[in-house]
Design a protein around this nucleic acid. Sequence first.
DNA 1: CGGGCTGTTGATCAGCCTCAATTCGAGTGG
DNA 2: CCACTCGAATTGAGGCTGATCAACAGCCCG
Lengths: 241, 241
Amino acid sequence: MGKANTAIAASGGYQAAEAARRHRIAVGVEIQNLSFVREGYQRGLPAVGSTLNFTENQEIYGEGDEAVLFFKVSIGVVRTCTYLSDGRRQIDAFYLPGNVFGLEVGAEHSLSAETVCNSTIISYRRRDLEMLAANNEGASRQLFSYAMQSLARAQQHAVVLGRRCAVEKVAAFLTDWAAYSPQSEILTLEMPRQDIADYLGLTIETVSRTFAHLEGKALIELPTARQIRLKDPEGLRHLNS
Amino acid sequence: MGKANTAIAASGGYQAAEAARRHRIAVGVEIQNLSFVREGYQRGLPAVGSTLNFTENQEIYGEGDEAVLFFKVSIGVVRTCTYLSDGRRQIDAFYLPGNVFGLEVGAEHSLSAETVCNSTIISYRRRDLEMLAANNEGASRQLFSYAMQSLARAQQHAVVLGRRCAVEKVAAFLTDWAAYSPQSEILTLEMPRQDIADYLGLTIETVSRTFAHLEGKALIELPTARQIRLKDPEGLRHLNS
DNA sequence: CGGGCTGTTGATCAGCCTCAATTCGAGTGG
DNA sequence: CCACTCGAATTGAGGCTGATCAACAGCCCG
């Protein structure tokens, strides 16, 4: 994909072009931590482990960019997504601190990655990881485990996209997001409505109306647009069959 | 999931209970061949490599079944899917001869697997593969590669489910399916409309109407319900942005 | 020739989208 | 400190796509 391919993975200038072709967000989230990333880093293996700072809506890499590096979120939130030629966007996942993204098998990144908010990202050299895995049984097992867990998450996402109605989609999103929130007290949504919509295959208006509807049913409360109090988490979970 | 858990993975009785809770089909397809499965098998490593015969709509394993074995399609077509409690179904993928399915990281199968038509399946012991991978760098790399390619496919599927309209969904399905068909001359759909619908997040009626619509536009031709002649493959591909 | 299943076609309905206007909130400058 | 501005979010009205309900046609098999 065009536009901001001068980003990280390609050049050394870690200033991504303004991303934001269109916006929408939601919660998929990578659950995994790759402990060998920490290990390798501490041992100084991937000398690259450099830290990058981004403001919101910056492209980290684009679809089709050479996949030389992969990344770990240190602070902030990152989304990976696909754009159709007419601008429609599907968000694949959100990545929280500790989550790894951008790992590929082929030569290129298959999705784009962008920051949702101000974020600090650590980059690693893919080749270093491959070398580590080649000599380390534990590392290659973790690598496989990481991929399979991502796969499981993608499959669950497909069910939500294909077979659930708007209320169920939003409920699933909130339930997922809550699982990664520090306090189950009040959820802080780091992303705008557009991201939630693009994650769930809806429009911002439908997301907004659904929030209102859930509030009407006393399942949630919206102190502000970005803060959600789950008054009845069990009731929400119940909406997922 | 309940019902037919006496299937393969659990007992030795390779008679799956009638599956068919509801039906629908479509084309996702695993692209990968795991060559170490062949290798291992030829070397006699997984002594299990036993061959199983199924008629159509039989459950191979159910969601939640213990994942002791994994499988490879020898003849026929297999689908993996998720059922919601109210009967809604999302088909995750179709597996063709040579494709491997049912490989897990956790203790249980995360999806159900069922035959689409009469099929011959080869079973392998997961532990054997894990041992092979532990001592064989090439095998563990292939394992990772397999998982990542499945992941890429799942991500593409999510875009179709979340951001494409009915015509585009059906066109995407036909294009995918055509890629795995021997002749690009005439496609033979091995699955009923219900499976296509559940793969694409549509209803059978919409699938049927969309086929009719594409035929009206002279993009395809339907000699029979299960045979499709792609009159304009390029036109179909063009529908995918 | 008569079931039973699969697929097609028609009519109607509803959920979600689209377009549009308004409100809300945060940041800026007077 | 308050008016102003701009983007995000909400809310409303109406339309369209795809779902639902229903009837019918085609086929396979007995």
